[in-house]
Amino acid sequence: MENAISVSGLRKSFGSTVALDGLDLSVATGEVHGFLGPNGSGKSTTIRVLLGLMRADKGTVRLLGGDPWRDAASLHRRLAYVPGDVSLWPNLSGGEVIDLLGRLRGGLDQRRRKELIERFDLDPKKKGRTYSKGNRQKVAIVAALASNVELLLLDEPTSGLDPLMEATFQYAIQEEREQGRTVLLSSHILAEVEALCDRVSIIRNGRTVETGTLADLRHLTRTSISAELAGHPNGLSKLENVHDLRIEGNRVQFDVETHSLDEALRSLTSIGVRSLTSQPPTLEELFLRHYTEDAKAGSAS
């Protein structure tokens, strides 16, 4: 099946600032795809290019089989967008905005609208500026989810939502996935991404640095091992790919890169293992590694 989104070699500059520097992104139809990266790494610019709000300087961009710049209006019938910072018209009520955006997309499921308003505990009678940030986000989320579309482009949609509403959102996205909709979810809430996403892409400085399933990405990082052994551990420090080794008597604690896990465990079992705990790499660690590398690269340049 064709990808819902395929982007390759995307470049976009604003004057002398390079926002996107050869970005690649592919989102398969029907998947929930996480889109991660530090602030200012180009996530929102990418989404604006996908929406045809900005024109790419270079590279190819295909969205739902069309060119997002040329076919903007016709493609937009088939997608819904939630910006990270929703700005509402001060003299329109939330309910009016939901209806308007839904109608402009080409239709709104009234039953779903009602259900979502209840689930998100939204007061549709309030006017634009009287909503809090979280409630403004809810207006845009309800408008997007109540529309009958194939693709959802969500740019940090849950910023400002409370944990209860965050859970409601995750549940709603699961439903969307079951309906066969494709979702591109830009987010900094890693638990959300871990819970929802089939695959993720991490971008940095306008370039894709990692892409794959969470399982794939975990392979690239380290597992934390802590063990109590039968005797004094030795030989571990000689192993490659073992980091932050700490030894206290018979207790040992270290991080090991996934592809050297076998070797490290063999070394432990050769001494005798009394207890063992291992922690799989979290997305957060993966994320932090890229972020700190980013900081290092930033300070080096």
Partner: peptide, 12 residues
């Protein structure tokens, strides 16, 4: 920033 969500619909 109120034009963006409109242009993300079928409005040309």
């Amino acid at each position: 920033m109120r034009v963006e969500p409109l242009l993300a619909t079928r409005v040309s």
